[in-house]
């Protein structure tokens, strides 16, 4: 099971300033009441958008069609719900740039082939300011030497090695890889006392 390599993401960007934006805000729990992800629809940031009365970045006409989300620190903290990156993806987001990400959120993004790249505080704030002033700018985000380019400018970014390699090689859908090591999995299981010496009795 191979997936397509992801080497770059192109398009407009959208800035969502603020630290500690949690997954309950990205997708409120009431939209999780479904046995499929299809029900997520366009509910990303539903409550924040309602509270902003149409003035939320995700509702503003100039940001429609944006592909690169630019956030600050600890984005995606809280609940493990994969519905959060999926609802962003359904809205159109294909990559996220931020100062830092909550871990479960980042690994959920990776599982969906959505790169999370990190930038220094100054870098991220600079990009956010540019996006707010000139929302129409077309950006190009490359993963190999992680960089964002736009308007003849460029911003250096970083990425963890593991996710970077997996995205670049198209092996970010881990299932196939995990299944290919069945022998080694068996060997590991054989040396775990709780699976052999005192396994579950029934």
């Amino acid at each position: 099971m191979t997936t397509a390599p992801i080497t770059m993401v192109e398009g407009k960007a959208i800035a969502l300033p603020g630290h500690d934006i949690d997954t309950d805000r990205i997708i409120p729990a009431r939209f999780l009441k479904s046995i499929s992800f299809a029900g997520l629809g366009n509910h990303v940031f539903a409550d924040d958008r309602a509270a902003a009365g149409g003035d939320h970045p995700f509702d503003r006409p100039e940001h429609q069609g944006a592909r690169i989300l630019v956030v600050n620190r600890n984005f995606g903290c809280g609940s493990s719900r994969e519905h959060a990156p999926r609802s962003l993806q359904r809205w159109g987001i294909a990559a996220v740039i931020g100062e830092s990400f909550a871990e479960i959120f980042a690994s959920n993004c990776l599982a969906l082939g959505m790169p999370c790249l990190r930038g220094e505080t100054g870098t991220v704030e600079d990009i956010q300011q540019l996006v707010q002033e000139q929302p129409g700018v077309h950006f190009c985000l490359t993963l190999e030497a992680p960089t964002l380019r736009g308007l003849d400018r460029h911003w250096p970014l970083t990425m963890e090695n593991g996710p970077q390699t997996m995205l670049l090689n198209g092996c970010w859908d881990a299932t196939g890889l995990l299944l290919s090591h069945d022998d080694r999995l068996r060997r590991t299981a054989l040396q775990l006392p709780y699976l052999n010496d005192f396994a579950l009795s029934n």
Partner: peptide, 11 residues
């Protein structure tokens, strides 16, 4: 104890 394999990319 639970390490099965090293994956490409270092995971």
């Amino acid at each position: 104890l639970h390490r099965v394999a090293e994956l490409p990319g270092g995971q």
